[in-house]
């Protein structure tokens, strides 16, 4: 089975290894954003999505999470 975001083989759930790592990174960094700005998950996703420093795969995962409204 292929990853939902690219043609790589998926590992578990919906994503390949790289996109899964990007998702884990998004979750990990959320704690720091909460600490810094006391922000909710949706606003956090919007903030990092429009940030030019956010990596390509992380942005792809954000879009996917927002569109499918799933918790991976």
């Amino acid at each position: 089975m292929k990853c939902k975001l690219c043609k790589r083989e998926k590992t578990e759930k919906e994503l390949c290894l790289f996109h899964k790592r990007a998702y884990e990174k998004i979750v990990e960094v959320y704690a720091e954003w909460v600490d810094a700005l006391n922000i909710n998950w949706e606003d956090y996703l919007s903030e990092i999505e429009k940030n030019s420093l956010t990596g390509k795969w992380a942005k792809e995962v954000i879009e996917f999470v927002k569109e499918s409204r799933v918790n991976l």
Binding site: V29, E32, W33, A36
Partner: peptide, 9 residues
């Protein structure tokens, strides 16, 4: 770089 998520400070 591709999975990077920035943190504010």
């Amino acid at each position: 770089r591709k999975i990077f998520v920035p943190t504010p400070y």
